[in-house]
Design a protein around this nucleic acid. Structure first.
Lengths: 222, 222
DNA sequence: TCACATATTGAGCAAATGCCCAACAAGACT
DNA sequence: AGTCTTGTTGGGCATTTGCTCAATATGTGA
């Protein structure tokens, strides 16, 4: 049925091709898992012969690491890009909402996946550490900005950034299953914790959450 | 150097052999990852030919699922076994301490690992869901007991159990890296959250934690 | 228009994995 | 001791994977 479809050989600049391969690999890793990034699978997606993939990435481990980095950068550009046009609190809300949204389930899974695979892949391990650091630095910077503008009150932005990032991970650990229940629960805790860490009144963030967890009614009186 | 070491053929009862294989697979999965559970690898550990593994587990997926279940049951027996001899609060503290301890890093990793691999392994997916449910039920029961004895005040034990379990996952997500910082941070949040969920005074649990996070000084006044 | 640098292919090797099955022998039973 | 059930082996086949390398042809520059 499906003819082998021998496309006429197409020649590209090394940089262009490298990027094309990395993108394809990132797409596969994101949609199907990092384990599915194989020479032949990527080659097929790019419309090229497996040998060419090896030519640009002498070892698959490097390709996987690059693919992860590529995806992580894409995600970061979406969620943590320095953006001076919006107030810090609004940016924090957007970040939390984004990660809690089902739309980012693939990215959440990818991070988990990377943590597991990095056990056997030193390059990926390094890439993971770098991306983690970058995210933490950007969130720290965002919190610092908020402190400077007077929006936040926070003794240790690095500490708070880490705590929030870990909780974001937690919220997405169950990215496989019916997330609704877990998301709602952890989402509430996440907003609550963020508010506390950033010196905000309860509800200051969660009340303006688009994705807002059902009834985040803080009820201190039992 | 290493002679093939042809051990004299040893015959066992099916149940015994099955358990032996499952244990070996669990050990491998725990120490090196579920991806390392292969017919030949397990056979080598058991001291048997690969064909025999196939005989007891017609498909590797089933063996992996069984191995995970085996490990999860072992862990549960250690941390969540019904135990009427100790008061509920003490048992909760022991649970949190246990998971935060570096000694349980392998188990934490295994759960993450299972979540990832279950994407390609339907049997493992089912096993994972079962083990999750069992853990949640046991923790729910523990909280219920605490409510009955008057130790805890908790509107929804199921809800609280889930939240605590998710946070435990979060604490161990970074089981690969230098956990110290993350563990301390999330550990503090974990105890704090548990205390809130169970209607306890701040510090009621954390103050008695053996593994206790450094300075869990609740400081409501900024 | 033609040559040339090099991006790309085609073919293949070695290793690892899952799975199958006929033959073998350990140990229980008579 | 001999028999017979069945746990166990040995060998092998089909796939998939990473990687190599000489040969090919594309598109640029002379």
């Amino acid at each position: 049925m499906t003819a082998p479809e021998a496309t006429p050989r197409k020649r590209r600049s090394p940089e262009e091709r490298r990027l094309e391969i990395a993108s394809a690999a990132a797409r596969i890793g994101l949609a199907e898992g990092l384990e599915r990034i194989t020479l032949r699978r990527v080659a097929e997606d790019v419309g090229v012969r497996p040998g060419l993939i090896s030519h640009y990435f002498p070892e698959v481990d490097g390709l996987v690491a690059t693919a992860f980095a590529h995806a992580a950068e894409t995600e970061r550009a979406d969620m943590l890009a320095p953006d001076t046009t919006r107030p810090p609190d609004e940016r924090v809300i957007a970040l939390l909402d984004e990660v809690l949204s089902p739309a980012s389930a693939d990215f959440s899974r990818l991070w988990l996946n990377a943590r597991i695979v990095s056990r056997y892949n030193a390059l990926l391990r390094q890439s993971l550490a770098e991306q983690e650091t970058l995210n933490r630095e950007l969130l720290t910077a965002l919190i610092r900005t908020g402190v400077e503008t007077g929006d936040f009150v926070c003794a240790s932005p690095e500490r708070s950034a880490l705590l929030i990032l870990v909780l974001l991970d937690a919220a997405s650990t169950y990215a496989n299953e019916d997330v609704t229940e877990v998301t709602a629960l952890v989402g509430a805790l996440l907003f609550e914790t963020a508010e506390r860490e950033l010196g905000l009144a309860p509800g200051a963030l969660s009340a303006r959450s688009a994705h807002l967890p059902p009834a985040a009614a803080p009820d201190p009186a039992s």
